[in-house]
Design a protein around this nucleic acid. Structure first.
Lengths: 224, 224
DNA sequence: CGTTCTGATGAAACTCGGTATCATCTTAGG
DNA sequence: CCTAAGATGATACCGAGTTTCATCAGAACG
């Protein structure tokens, strides 16, 4: 704690200066000076000025990718849910940093563009995963595109709500709710819409027998 | 035709040079020189270097906004469909420009980021429209977010497919298909998923009476 | 016809982000 | 003690974008 890493000092200096004087008004020299290093060193730790605001997106992206790749057939839903939770957890863990960044990004168009671009990278991971998961079913590409867009949108909606509320309430309840909604929506869509299902039972069948048949049908395909 | 506008000359010079020598390797001076004007003039017509590649996003955005605002209650679905079609039409109309830009954007990360950011602006329009449309229903914000993301994703999926195919086939069929899918998906979702509906008829009911009851139920709420 | 005003263009200087290069310093290891 | 390697600083450079001023063409007006 005596001497925090240069990377940390730079990031803190950057955010502090952006807060105080605005993003465009802050030069890389200013940041480096406050962190007590040279301009050269700044660019050794961050590729660009805005990188100092979004430090660990690559790590996070890798974690999401890893979680998705760790999924085996039949556990796709859990993989998606877990992966999204990983991202949200990351934000919640340093709530104060997330909040400062949120306020900052809201004011600086350049940073907003940067953030939107990084969101697209997450969506790409989900799209590829869901795409291979759905491969073979009708409209697989389209549905993968839509579902991945929805998954990411759901996460962002919950995250923004949490950030707007100042990080007060627990966001994982809403996240689960939103994800359940997404999954239910796109799962239902897996069966063609205009198919008509007629269930017929012999009028002699006992209620128990009917119930058992229904239960078997409902639990047949899915493990849980 | 004798003297095309400076704006046109600049855009053509830019795209041509980007194609020939690459984006980073082309300076604004090069573009201006080929267009026969000065560097100053370039920046009078385009705010930035990449602006020359995305000239009319603002106009298009305004057209989408206008179409959405022109909608009255009950015609929301048509408004969304029309608005998306406006965008796709714009791309299809100058197919060659769209194709060159597509290839260019695919190779240059800076341009890709720029494009992704502009997509977010479209989504925002749709989100706000769908949000007010759904206002009052449960989970309106979440569903507006998801549906707008899906609408935009559907458009982009169709557009990319059309571009990858070199602008060969007609894309409006696939677009309608995709949009119908989106609308059906999120319309169904309006009724809660886990509600269990049990229909019961007296065993004495004639088939005709049952059919009539079903027909009334199906056509009751919707005009068509 | 000449003057004047306006709008468009060009020229030049400047800031700053980002890259490349070289010198200097520190420090581990022999 | 010496050396090699890695981290840092200093400097120069390129190019995007902004600002300011000069110039020039043409329209309006007397």
């Amino acid at each position: 704690m005596a001497t925090p890493s240069i990377s940390h000092r730079l990031a803190e200096a950057a955010v502090a200066l952006f807060d105080e004087n605005g993003y465009d008004e802050t030069t890389v020299d200013d940041i480096a000076a406050r962190a007590g290093v040279s301009r050269s060193t700044f660019f050794r730790y961050y590729r660009s000025k805005d990188d100092a605001v979004f430090p660990d997106h690559d790590t996070l992206l890798a974690a999401v990718d890893a979680r998705l790749r760790a999924s085996t057939a039949g556990t796709a839903i859990a993989a998606v849910t877990d992966a999204v939770r990983i991202v949200l957890t990351h934000y919640v863990e340093d709530a104060d940093v997330s909040l400062r960044r949120y306020r900052l990004v809201g004011r600086v168009p350049a940073l907003r563009a940067r953030e939107i671009a990084s969101v697209a990278r997450y969506q790409r991971l989900f799209r590829e995963f869901i795409g291979t998961w759905m491969a073979g079913t009708p409209d697989a590409d389209l549905r993968a595109e839509l579902m991945s867009a929805s998954v990411v949108a759901a996460h962002n909606q919950v995250l923004r709500g949490w950030l707007r509320a100042g990080g007060a309430h627990d966001p994982f309840g809403p996240l689960d709710h939103a994800l359940r909604y997404v999954i239910a929506t796109f799962q239902y869509a897996e069966q063609p819409k205009d198919q008509i299902v007629v269930a017929a039972f012999p009028s002699s069948a006992s209620p128990q027998a009917v119930m058992e048949a229904v239960r078997l049908h409902l639990t047949g395909g899915e493990r849980r």
